[in-house]
Amino acid sequence: MITLYDYELSGNCYKLRLLMSMLGVDWKTVPVDFYPGREHKSDWFLRINPLGQLPVIDDDGLILRDAQAILVYLASKYDAAGTWYPRDNPALLGEVSQWLAFADGITATASAARLHDALFYDFDVEAARTGAHRLFRILDEHLWFGEQEGRDWICSASHPTIADIACFPYIMLSEEGGISRQDYPAIRRWCDRVKRIKGFTVMSGVFPAGPAKAA
């Protein structure tokens, strides 16, 4: 049984809840009071993750930190079809890794702006917002041309990968950091598609989409 050290309002923890829900994996949750309790900096948690960051999982004794690393592990271990993290397709695997790094950039900007606005972190919020808009422009252009080429997802596969899951939460929560997505219509349409993946689940601030039109 997987144990997730979890904070409900964390987009990085939400990534793992999303993928586990889509994979149909069971898990149990250990809530960590990130705010205002700062429990992720407490002695007991630092023993689990010396970086003092969420999320962490414990899968039968294997302890892993870092949301993107855990996505790789979960998809490799629990996705029998092997589509979420396509280990046998080097080109696609390269793309996935490239966009996982991009997701870290989204965390460093859009998530930082949200921490500033919602949890009163002392960050340079204007720099964070500017950085997020720069990334969103790049992703919107990428997704728009993807649509023109008949591609629905971030990587060039006919199915979603963990790159979509890694990018989704802090894009979807960006308005809580004062970053509008109005100028990114292709990102907004991609968000609808992610929400329609079987097993999709919501968190505070993320609303569901309605069903797609039956073919």
């Binding site: 649509e147 997505r181 109005q182 219509p185 907004r188 349409r189 609808d192 989409a209 309605g210 069903p211 797609a212 039109k213």
Partner: peptide, 28 residues
């Protein structure tokens, strides 16, 4: 205020003109 391809079915586009925001959607 939008391109026709901005309005796929079952989507709501977020538009704006001269400061006024719109919810734009194509019905089935």
């Amino acid at each position: 205020i939008a391109a026709a391809h901005d309005l796929p079915l079952r989507h709501v586009f977020h538009g704006q003109l001269l400061g006024r925001e719109f919810a734009v959607w194509r019905a089935d």
